[in-house]
Computed example of a mutant assay.
Amino acid sequence: MRNISDLIEQYLKQILHNSSEGIVEIQRSELAEKFSCVPSQINYVISTRFTLEKGYFVESKRGGGGYIRIQRVDLPSLEAVQRHIQQTVGEQIDQTTAEGLIYQLEESRFLTQREAYLLRAAVSRDVLQLKLPLRDEIRAKLLKAMLVALLAR
């Protein structure tokens, strides 16, 4: 059975998918009421699953009449994706940022589910059992090399 965070994430992604502009505006309290949860649960889902690394821009206005606006940031072309990879990865990259980039590329259909799974496994701190900053440097080199090979197909 899925947990409440998964259900909220899926609901928001469905709304985004159905939106012609790729933008959704929600009120935290209304969404919390819909899912019978506290507003902080909505905050948690948005802050962990709708990040810029995962391809989302989030804007929040608090107070009466406040809202949360989530916008999907699509990667338009292969050249733009390659530039994005170079900017995101750089000389070193931590595991969270690497996984966010992989997620974004999978969501944009530049990577298959299987490719994304393999990339996540390869850049995991469980596999790269090295001390920092060497671990993040090797992760960056591995990730760039694998993405260049996969995106050149």
Rank of each mutant, 00 (worst) to 15 (best):
K61V: 15
I102K: 09
L128V: 05
L147W: 02
D74F: 13
I68S: 02
Q87T: 14
Q129N: 10
A32D: 04
K54H: 00
R62E: 05
G64A: 08
Y67L: 14
R49E: 05
S29F: 10
D74M: 15
H17M: 13
S47L: 06
L132D: 07
F35P: 06
L7V: 06
I68N: 02
K141C: 11
Q86T: 10
M1A: 09
R135K: 03
G66E: 09
N18I: 02
Q113P: 13
V45M: 01
D6Y: 06
Q10W: 07
A145E: 07
G65C: 04
Q104K: 15
R72I: 05
K144E: 08
E107C: 06
Y11M: 10
L134A: 13
K34A: 05
L78G: 02
A140W: 01
Q71H: 06
F50Y: 05
E53A: 07
I4S: 06
R72F: 07
K61A: 09
Q129F: 12
L16D: 04
K144G: 06
T88W: 02
R135I: 06
E115G: 01
G90K: 02
H84Q: 13
D6C: 08
R153V: 07
K13N: 14
S36V: 03
S20E: 13
K131W: 03
Q14V: 11
A152C: 10
E137S: 14
S47E: 11
G64V: 07
I23P: 00
L118A: 12
E107I: 02
R120F: 05
L150R: 15
L16N: 08
A145K: 15
A98W: 01
T48D: 04
S20V: 08
E107Y: 06
T97F: 06
F57K: 15
L7M: 11
E79A: 15
F35R: 11
G63W: 02
L105K: 01
E59N: 15
R120I: 00
